[in-house]
């Protein structure tokens, strides 16, 4: 059984002063080929920023898509430029769903932009492992303590469940099955992003509800039908500050024995 509840709305999105090192903007991504893996870049106010490298599905930051703009939320660093771009770290990338044929810049390799380090993953076959360990699914202990446990599921801007989420949902499922959970509380949130130009991007209306309901459906669809589900959502985004906006895009799950 699923019970749906609207939790009290948080304050409406109001812009605060952006951090001087933070670079939050929407732009077309640019691909630059190299002798090994391609780099992903984006321009903002006449400056070129390095977003990420092509690696594999396990990467903490996955490349965006030509054919779409990307929301970049990153912090400018003093690290040596990569592929000509200022390194943003940490950086969050959210592909804008709308198609944009103007985003189609694929630059050829130039010797000056070749990587001066070995990439985590070559363009061809790997050496037998994923480039990162972010997809390692944590196995539930054989007999975990039957205690209340919380999980948080993060999202890209305006995002729903996608390829990153199996690694986040599997521990929830495993734990709930292992402790024979009697109730699962799901609370959806949505956010807004304060851009470096002072404007605010808000996620789609009702996204918090849709996220929370989808998580309940997915857990049930994966066979977790015994617990009683309570689904809440917070219908408005907290005021964005340009620094901590990404964590607001989440669903919190509480599993109770």
């Amino acid at each position: 059984m699923i019970t749906l509840l609207l939790t009290g709305a948080a304050s409406a999105a109001v812009a605060a002063a952006p951090d001087a090192q933070q670079r939050n903007f929407v732009a077309c991504p640019i691909v630059r080929d190299t002798a090994s893996v391609p780099c992903w870049l984006a321009e903002y106010e006449g400056e070129l920023y390095f977003l990420t490298l092509q690696t594999d599905v396990s990467a903490p930051v996955n490349p965006p898509m030509l054919g779409h703009k990307v929301l970049v939320e990153g912090r400018r660093t003093d690290k040596p430029r990569i592929c000509g771009g200022i390194v943003l770290e940490p950086v969050r990338l959210s592909v804008v769903p709308a198609l944009d044929a103007n985003c189609n810049q694929l630059l050829p390799a130039e010797a000056q932009y070749n990587l001066d380090f070995e990439p985590p993953r070559p363009p061809g076959p790997s050496k037998g492992r994923l480039a990162f360990n972010t997809l390692d699914v944590q196995q539930a202990p054989v007999a975990p303590q039957r205690v209340e446990k919380q999980f948080s599921i993060g999202y890209d801007f305006d995002g729903r469940v996608g390829f990153k989420h199996p690694a986040l949902l599997q521990p929830v499922l495993d734990y709930a099955l292992a402790i024979k959970a009697r109730s699962i509380d799901i609370e959806g949130h949505q956010g807004a992003a304060l851009l470096s130009d002072g404007s605010v991007l808000s996620e789609a209306a009702h996204l918090a509800q849709q996220r929370a309901q989808q998580i309940a459906e997915l857990l049930q669809g994966a066979g977790l039908t015994a617990p009683r589900y309570t689904v809440h959502w917070v219908d408005a985004a907290p005021a964005p500050n340009g620094t901590d906006d990404a964590p607001q895009r989440r669903v919190d799950i509480t599993v109770r024995p």
């Binding site: 391609p38 992903w40 092509q54 996955n62 490349p63 898509m65 054919g67 363009p123 076959p125 996608g162």
Partner: peptide, 11 residues
């Protein structure tokens, strides 16, 4: 669409 980017230089 699964984290490799579009396009991806692969085999």
């Amino acid at each position: 669409s699964v984290g490799l980017g579009n396009p991806t230089k692969r085999t």
